[in-house]
């Protein structure tokens, strides 16, 4: 169990930094929104006292930078107060993004593991595929997302799958790299031991290579999950802002609804944090059961 002193010493620095960030956020909201408030006051023919100015900058309808509590209210209004099936509900949009993310993540992880198994077992694949796997990531796939979406739509694939393809492309790479490293992590001594037992290749894989690759796999999965969410969000941009967190971003930027942009952004951040934390939890449980966690 963690002692309370350890708890404080671990979280105090983080909380301090968060407090600083929120303070800076409020201050910049004043600085950025002040010109508009002054402008409005001038037209109304009144002069603003400092406290009036501050309260105005924190409560504008289309501020340059909304204050944290405005974003929080917007998130509360669009999640708790709206029906989930409503098109204004952030949960509905979030679910659309989440489903594409998860599908892409599953596809990417599967593809990544398959490629890694091939690369570890076949020298030809190692030599020919591995350099291209690395090169594939220098193509800014996010930039190509609009084309992929449009093309797949043209051949009749629409909805979830095109977005998931982009997520897949982004998430398979960390899995391949991590799994290749992990599957090769058993020491020469362990592999020799297996050979003295004349273990078939498949048993070596299931009993030795795969278990020792687990810690690497989970680290990769966390990166892959985060990348997958980014892919799904960007994949939603060119669909004409219909549904999803990415669509909320785009619609917000078309109509200057800054509060809406920020609330979509913060919900995406929360979603990413929850997903990564979930994988961390599975990692803890799995490694504990395998006896790899002390």
């Amino acid at each position: 169990m963690m002692s309370s002193a350890g708890f404080i010493s671990r979280f105090a620095p983080v909380l301090t930094i968060i407090a600083i960030i929120i303070a800076v956020w409020y201050a910049s909201a004043v600085a950025l929104n002040a010109p508009w408030a002054q402008d409005k006051a001038k037209r109304a023919g009144v002069t603003l006292s400092f406290s009036e100015l501050v309260s105005d900058t924190w409560a504008q309808e289309k501020p340059k930078l909304p204050a944290p509590h405005q974003v929080a209210t917007e998130i509360y209004n669009t999640t708790v107060m709206k029906k989930i099936t409503s098109k204004r509900s952030l949960i509905w949009h979030g679910w659309i993004t989440l489903s594409a993310t998860l599908l892409g993540f599953a596809l990417g992880t599967g593809l990544g593991i398959l490629l890694a198994v091939g690369i570890v077992h076949s020298r030809a694949m190692d030599l020919s595929v591995m350099p291209w796997v690395i090169a594939s990531q220098t193509i800014p796939i996010l930039a190509v997302a609009p084309m992929i979406i449009v093309v797949l739509n043209a051949v009749g694939i629409s909805g979830l799958l095109p977005k998931a393809m982009i997520s897949m492309y982004l998430s398979f790479f960390p899995v391949v790299v991590g799994m290749v490293k992990g599957l090769r992590s058993p020491s020469a001594m362990q592999l020799d031991q297996m050979r003295t037992w004349s273990t078939p290749k498949s048993t070596v894989f299931w009993k030795l290579r795969l278990p020792s690759a687990m810690p690497y796999l989970f680290t990769s999965l966390k990166i892959g999950m985060a990348a997958s969410l980014v892919g799904a969000i960007v994949g939603e941009l060119p669909t004409g802002a219909v549904a999803g967190l990415g669509a909320r971003l785009l619609a917000g930027s078309y109509y200057g609804q800054t509060i809406q942009i920020w609330s979509a952004l913060i919900s995406a951040a929360i979603l990413a944090a929850v997903l990564v934390a979930l994988i961390g939890l599975i990692q803890r449980i799995t490694l504990q059961r395998m006896g790899m966690l002390r």
Binding site: V14, I18, A226, G246, L249, S253, L265, A268
Partner: peptide, 27 residues
């Protein structure tokens, strides 16, 4: 102290969909 605070937050932010900031910054 600042390091202990910045590292977890930095790691967290590095995993966020930062591209989403694009429309705001363009504005």
């Amino acid at each position: 102290f600042l390091q202990a605070g910045l590292l977890p937050i930095g790691n967290f932010v590095a995993a966020l969909p930062i591209v989403g900031m694009a429309p705001i910054l363009v504005m």
